[in-house]
Nucleic acid binder design. Structure first.
Length: 860
RNA sequence: GGGUAUUUAGCUCAGCUGGUUAGAGCGCACGGUUCACAUCCGUGAGGUCACUGGUUCGAGUCCAGUAAUACCCACCA
């Protein structure tokens, strides 16, 4: 059989075929799984990647983790479902397509909406196909029959219904407000889509009628309608409530002085100018004091017609001009250079944000409604976390979520871009119609805006599971009943607030339940220097290239091991290469195994099948491993689980048991352990394990085999201890061989009065054991006497042994002191005390052996 | 300004509820290739677990503080 098995594991040859086999089997779809009638479902909805680009290594990490979870639970007998999909990423996609078109000299406006959208769809069909291909290459066991897109027909329908329902419940309203406006994207942005960048600018101190006050934006003076001071500030007490005429570059204008606690007495002069239309804090002050609003900046970020000679300038141009003019008029007190402050920019394109007033659609997060038990969306969303209906892994993110949710303002959901979900609202003069389908009659025009991309992705867990069809009269049916709430949302911590919190809000409203029971947050994938991978830096690692070079299994392992939840992972090609070596190791174990024509995988074993110490030992270790690994995976400790598996496979099984099998030839045990190894590894490295398994069973799939259960009866502590002693003796002899440069081919004579495991020792350390006590200079290891005549440097060996003896004596002293400590005896657990006692006995025994050894050497 | 995390071997990182002589991979040193595997095997060197206190019979692990680093949130005119 071995001759037919290729010497190398050729992942490129194997992987696509295996994936096709899985896909054709239909088992990605839980409806086809052969599970118990009352089997629980296990659902993960894939966080849909943006169709703006192909997948990067961060996505690969996400896919590796989710596939691990899904495969694990599928093998555990769950109705496992993983729904794939992609996100239309409204603004981001529009920007990418716009940029591409600009390279050809075409602008969005010149194409017109319809033609432009055609270009967008052309683009997204391509990237979508690439993404689907990449997911398959990662081995993702997703149910493609349920694949979704945030902007396909079913999702459009769901979004429309959601909007209408929320509107009817009074949670969606239209308001005229100051919003974050990106003059480049020509659209609003949500608060958390704004990025702040530090900038060194100037702080202008203005002579402002009776005041002197500081501002970084003197051009907004044209829109000022008030001055605000702190109510307790004695300097301005008498001025509150009075009106003043302020000299300005376009003539005098009137302001009113108001007292508001938002003002910081200690900053600047303690008085601030209020520009309600172009500053959030000012807008809020204006609301509280009923101050009028005067808009001076338009949607292009330019000064409006009411700005006299400054009209048409950008804010930056206007600032320079106005400052010049104010200086001429003597209105500038002084200018502070190098003033460091934060600049609000658009997270998609980096353009400076202008706060401007605008009519937009909002979701009210603080409004209490009956449907939510007279609570607000915010209250219910906070409850979900505090009542642990949703658990965060790692737990610390609960706090981040709650803090963010507590400070949430009404969510602006309308966007002035072309690509996205249409808003199901129609206008006829002053009349407004909100409904899932357009009202009859020609005179109605639909709202030209589209919805924030998070509105549709916020519905992702249920819009993909048949909502609204599978939800009648508050009852879930079909898929929605079977698979919702989902078990885990696995995603990067960077979108905890952007996305996760919105899903919670939307789902609570639509279904009166949480979207998922657990939120597992993985870190960012960084390069080996801890830097973010990016195209511009050229430090990115392309997942497909790595898969091609090292195989998917190796790539998956490099992303799963050596990391902890919520922490960033550094990855390098060397790391991937390393795990490729492990996959090769697994393959070589298989080659050894299959070199025996009688080799068969064995699902079960009887105690009688265990013939030797080695058998009892490896089977015991295996069964301990099974329960630990299951437990680790269930508790999201993938890295730990993988490391334990690796250690078992490489160090225990390959390095020890397989070597011993060459002598003992217990094929049953070998087949049993190997069978379990393949199953335990499958969720981590699905391809190589499936390939090996299929070589034994043409008509079965490892993917749907039962996950191993630990059999406690096979755990044998004595065997583990005894084998440990054997390993130690062998290591010691090997150690002696290397430290004294004994020719590796030289077979050392040795004798023992009571030889156990003779063959193993002889073979593994190249000695010849007999039980006749010759007259020879010997070195005693355990109960083995090595004939070291003329071989070793006695003094050197004594010195090294004495060092060990000293260490051992220290350990004994420390442990005995502990045992003599009354407090320890009184307070420690009985188990711990017993363990400690056993330990001290073991130490003493070792010490005795070593002392004998030294005495023995000294006599030579 | 507020918050969270990180700090363990030369490098990258594990270490779950406090309890053996703190681990892995890479790198390094030495030795090894007919016998599954040089993408390998064997042996070894290398750590005051950032620092200072505290709680405890017992601290890498818990608490407080300090320092460095990273990130998040808020935004102040």
């Amino acid at each position: 059989m071995l001759s037919q098995i290729s010497k190398r594991y050729d992942h490129n040859e194997v992987e696509d075929k295996i994936y096709e086999l899985w896909e054709r089997s239909g088992f990605f779809n839980p409806d086809n799984l052969d599970v118990e009638k009352d089997a629980k479902s296990y659902t993960i909805i894939l966080p849909p990647p943006n169709i703006t680009d192909k997948l990067h290594l961060g996505h690969s990490a996400m896919l590796a983790i989710e596939d691990l979870l899904v495969r694990f639970h599928r093998m555990k007998g769950f109705r496992a479902l993983w729904v794939p999909g992609t996100d239309h990423a409204a603004i981001a996609t529009q920007n990418v397509v716009e940029k591409n078109l600009l390279k050809k000299g075409i602008t969005r406006q010149s194409l017109g909406k319809e033609k432009f959208l055609e270009e967008v769809w052309k683009f997204l069909n391509e990237t979508q196909a690439t993404i689907q291909h990449q997911m398959r290459k990662m081995g993702a066991s997703m149910d493609w029959s349920r694949e979704a897109f945030t902007l396909d027909e079913p999702r459009k329908k769901a979004v429309r219904k959601m909007f209408v329902d929320m509107y009817n419940a009074g949670l969606i309203y239209r308001g005229y407000r100051v919003v974050n406006w990106c003059p480049r994207c020509h659209s609003t942005l949500a608060d958390d889509e704004v990025e702040y960048k530090e900038e060194t600018g100037k702080l202008y101190w203005l002579k402002y009628g009776p005041f002197i006050l500081a501002t970084s934006r003197p051009e907004t003076k044209l829109g000022d309608t008030a001055v605000a001071v702190h109510p307790d500030d004695p300097r301005y007490k008498d001025m509150v409530g009075k009106k003043f005429m302020i000299p300005g570059v376009l003539g005098d204008f009137e302001i009113i002085v108001v007292a508001d606690k938002a003002v910081d007495k200690d900053f600047g002069s303690g008085a601030i100018k209020v520009t309600p239309a172009h500053d959030f804090a000012d807008y809020e002050i204006a609301q509280r004091h009923h101050i009028p609003m005067k808009q001076i900046i338009d949607e292009d970020g330019k000064m409006m017609d009411n700005c006299g000679k400054y009209a048409g300038m950008t804010t930056v141009e206007a600032r320079e001009e106005i400052v010049k003019d104010m200086e001429k008029m003597g209105l500038i007190d002084h200018i502070e250079e190098n003033y460091v402050h934060n600049l609000a920019t658009c997270y998609r394109c980096g353009t400076v944000i202008e706060p401007i007033p605008s009519k937009q659609w909002f979701v009210a997060v603080d409004k209490k409604i009956e449907k939510l038990g007279n609570k607000s969306l915010k209250e219910r969303a906070l409850e979900a976390a505090s009542k642990k209906e949703i658990k965060f892994i790692p737990e610390r993110f609960t706090k981040r979520y709650s803090d963010w949710m507590t400070n949430l303002h009404d969510w602006c959901i309308s966007r002035q871009i072309w690509f996205g979900h249409d808003i199901p609202v129609w206008y006829k003069g002053q009349e407004i119609y909100v409904g899932e389908v357009a009202p009859k009659g020609d005179e109605w025009t639909q709202d030209p805006d589209t919805l924030d991309t998070w509105f549709s992705s916020g519905m992702w867990t249920f819009s993909t599971l048949g909502w609204p069809e599978d939800y009648k009269d508050g009852k879930k049916t079909e898929d929605l009943a079977k698979f919702h709430p989902t078990q885990v949302l696995e995603t990067g911590y960077d979108i905890l607030t952007l996305w996760v919190s919105r899903m919670i809000i939307m789902t609570i409203f639509a279904l009166d339940e949480v979207p998922f029971e657990n939120v597992y947050l993985h870190g960012l994938v960084l390069d080996k220097h801890g830097k973010k991978m990016s195209k511009s830096k050229g430090n990115g690692i392309d997942p497909l290239e790595m898969i091609e070079k090292y195989g998917t299994d190796a790539v998956r392992l490099s992303l799963l091991l050596g990391s902890t939840p919520g922490n960033n992972v550094r990855i390098s090609e060397e790391k991937i290469e390393n795990f490729r070596n492990f996959v090769t190791k697994l393959w070589n174990i298989y080659r050894y195994f299959a070199s025996n024509p009688r080799a068969k995988l064995k699902d079960n074993i009887e105690k009688d099948d265990l013939k030797s110490l080695s058998d009892r030992w490896i089977v015991s270790e295996l069964n301990s491993l099974i329960s630990e690994v299951s437990d680790d995976v269930e508790k999201y400790r993938f890295s730990l689980a993988g490391e334990k598996l690796e250690k078992f496979t490489w160090d225990k099984f390959a390095a020890w048991y397989v070597e011993i099998h060459k002598m003992e030839k217990n094929d049953i045990v070998l087949g049993y352990v190997f069978d379990k190894i393949l199953k335990l590894w499958h969720p981590f490295t699905p391809f190589v394990t499936e390939k090996i398994f299929r070589d034994f069973y043409e008509d079965k799939l490892l993917m749907v085999e039962k996950y191993p259960e630990s059999d406690k009866n096979l755990i044998n502590k004595e065997a583990v201890n005894e084998f440990g002693a054997l390993q130690e003796a062998i290591s010691k002899i090997r150690n002696i061989r290397t430290s004294y440069h004994i020719d590796s081919k030289l077979i050392i004579n040795a004798h023992s009065e009571n030889i156990k495991n003779k063959e193993i020792i002889e073979k593994l350390v190249r000695i010849k054991l007999d039980n006749i006590n010759h007259e020879m200079r010997t070195l005693n290891i355990g109960n083995i006497n090595l004939d070291i005549t003329n071989i070793i440097d006695v003094q050197k060996e004594i010195a090294s042994l004495e060092k060990e003896i000293k260490n051992m004596e220290n350990s004994i002293a420390k442990t005995e002191a502990l045992l003599n400590n009354d407090n320890f005896i009184k307070k420690a657990d009985m188990d711990i005390i017993n363990q400690t006692k056993t330990r001290v006995d073991e130490y003493k025994e070792k010490l005795r052996v070593q002392r004998d050894l030294v005495d023995n050497l000294k006599q030579l």
